[in-house]
Simulated scan of single mutants.
Amino acid sequence: MKRLFWFAVGVGAAAFVVVKGKELYQRYTPKGIAEQVEKTRSEVGSWIGDFLSTMGEAMDSREDELREALGLEE
């Protein structure tokens, strides 16, 4: 029974290593690297868009506060 248990553990470990090894191999092929670069580029583009949008809203809000504090009309 012990042998069967350890055999099953070995088969499971080998399957895990093969699957993860294949994923790692595909990740570092030229196609995989190109996909990673594209994913990172799109994430950075999204982050920059969010940042600029938030910054614009904050600037408008602060301008309104200053105008109100100084008694200026638009």
Rank of each mutant, 00 (worst) to 15 (best):
S53H: 12
M1C: 03
G45Y: 07
R67S: 04
G71V: 03
E68H: 07
L24P: 00
E38Y: 03
L24E: 09
K39E: 15
G45D: 15
D60S: 12
S61K: 15
L4G: 02
V11F: 05
L4M: 08
S42P: 00
R3D: 08
E74L: 09
K31Y: 04
L72R: 09
R67H: 02
F16R: 03
E68C: 00
F7A: 09
Y25K: 11
T40D: 10
S42T: 15
G12Q: 02
L4F: 08
A34N: 06
K22G: 02
D50P: 00
Q26I: 01
G10V: 02
S53P: 00
R27D: 11
A8C: 05
D64Y: 01
R3I: 06
V17M: 07
S46G: 08
K39M: 10
K31F: 06
D50Y: 09
V9F: 03
A8Q: 06
T40C: 04
K39D: 13
A14L: 14
S53M: 08
V18I: 12
E74Y: 11
V37F: 03
S46W: 09
T29R: 07
E73Q: 13
A13T: 04
T40N: 13
G71C: 05
V9H: 01
T40F: 14
S46N: 12
R41V: 07
V19N: 03
A69R: 13
P30N: 11
G49I: 04
F16C: 03
A15T: 09
I33L: 12
T54S: 13
G45W: 05
E35G: 02
A69Y: 07
E43A: 14
E35H: 06
G10L: 05
E63G: 00
K22C: 05
G71T: 06
K2M: 08
M1Q: 08
Q26F: 12
L24N: 06
G10R: 02
E43S: 11
E74S: 09
A8K: 07
M59E: 13
R41M: 13
S42M: 14
S46K: 15
R62V: 07
F7M: 10
G10M: 05
S61F: 11
A34E: 11
R3W: 06
S61A: 13
T40A: 15
V18T: 08
G12L: 06
A15Q: 01
T40V: 15
F7V: 08
M1R: 06
Q36K: 13
T54K: 14
V44C: 02
T40G: 00
M59R: 12
K22H: 11
G32L: 09
T29G: 03
Q26D: 14
V18W: 12
D64W: 01
